[in-house]
Design a protein around this nucleic acid. Structure first.
Lengths: 145, 145
DNA sequence: AACATAAAAGAGTTTATTGTCTTTTATTGC
DNA sequence: GCAATAAAAGACAATAAACTCTTTTATGTT
C-alpha cells in the first residue's frame, strides 16, 4: 500500500470531486462520483455517509438530492479527511510500532520519523478543499484519466 | 496503521535485534528474538525465513543454530528491509492512489507527496543496520520497554 | 547411526479491509 | 397522499493481512 488506506484515497478523491462539481451550486449523485473517481459505488457510499456524519461533506436525500459542499465544508483541510478515515496513527504513531516510544523515551528512529510525520501533517493541514479546487478548475490537475 | 505494515515493523525490529545480539559472534534463536521485540513467534519465523532467502539476515539450522548477521548483511540498509517486506509502493505510489499519476502527468498532490516519499526513502537508505547497531550498543536506544 | 536442536516449510485460523447487494428512510413534485 | 428519487442503513461476500499450529529438513553432538 501507499501512505494512505484505499478507503482514505477514495475519500480524498471524492471530496475533491464533489467540491469541483458543486462549487457553483447544485448537487452530485453517488453514481456520478463513483464513476468520476473510479471507485466502487456502494463502498464509496459508506465512506461518504461517514464523512457526512462528520460534517466534512453535505448531503441531501430525495429528488435533486445528492452530495455537495457549503462554505463550512469547503474550508475543511485535507488533514481532517485523512483523520476521519484513517485516524491519527499516521501523525502520531511510532515508525517501528513501539508502544513506549515518545518524546522523552524515543525509539531509534524517533527523530527521523518525527520530522517526516510533521511534514505529512503540515502538507495535509495546509491544503483546504477550497484551495485545491482552484487547481482543478484551472485544469492543472484532474482526478481520473 | 502507521507508515509501515505490522509485518514490516516486526521485520525492522527483528533485524536490529539480531544485529545487536550477534555483533560479536554467536547466534540467536527465534524464541529469544520474538520475546525481545514483542512479536508473535511463529509469525515472525515466517518473516525471518523470507528475509533469509533475500540475504538480509543469515540463519543456521541445528544445535547452536539460529539467526545472525555477517559482514554483508550488516551493511544492508533499512530501505532494503522495507522493500523486501512492503514492496516499493511507499516510495513510488501516488498519494491519491491514481494509476496515471506520474512526473509528466501529475495528480494534484504529486509534488508534495514526491518530496515526502523521497524524504522517507532517503532516511531508510541512509540507515545501515551496522550504524544503527552502534546506537543500540551505546544504550542510546532500545527495542522494547 | 541415533538423538537432540533449531530453522524451514506447510496448512491452516482469525481478523481487518475492501467490496456488493438489498431494504429503509427522507424529500420533492405532482 | 402518491409516486419517484436518492441517500442512509443493514447484512452480507471476497480478499488480504496477521497470526497459530504441526510436520519436515538440516546440522551438530554423542
Amino acid at each position: 500500500m501507499g501512505i494512505f488506506s484505499k478507503t482514505c484515497e477514495y475519500a480524498m478523491r471524492a471530496v475533491f470531486f464533489i467540491a469541483h462539481r458543486t462549487a457553483n451550486g447544485g448537487r452530485v449523485g453517488i453514481k456520478e462520483i463513483a464513476t468520476g473517481i473510479n471507485s466502487p459505488e456502494h463502498f464509496l457510499a459508506k465512506i461518504l455517509q461517514d464523512l457526512g456524519r462528520r460534517n466534512i461533506i453535505k448531503s441531501a436525500k430525495g429528488p435533486n438530492g445528492g452530495f455537495f459542499m457549503d462554505d463550512v465544508t469547503l474550508k475543511r483541510r485535507l488533514s481532517e479527511v485523512v483523520e476521519a478515515v484513517d485516524g491519527n496513527g499516521l501523525f502520531t504513531g511510532c515508525g517501528l510500532g513501539l508502544d513506549y516510544c515518545s518524546e522523552t523515551d524515543p525509539c531509534p528512529l524517533h527523530n527521523e520519523f518525527k520530522a517526516i510525520r510533521e511534514r505529512i501533517h503540515q502538507m495535509l493541514e495546509n491544503t483546504t478543499i477550497e484551495e485545491f479546487n482552484e487547481d482543478l478548475n484551472l485544469g492543472v490537475t484532474r482526478l481520473k484519466k
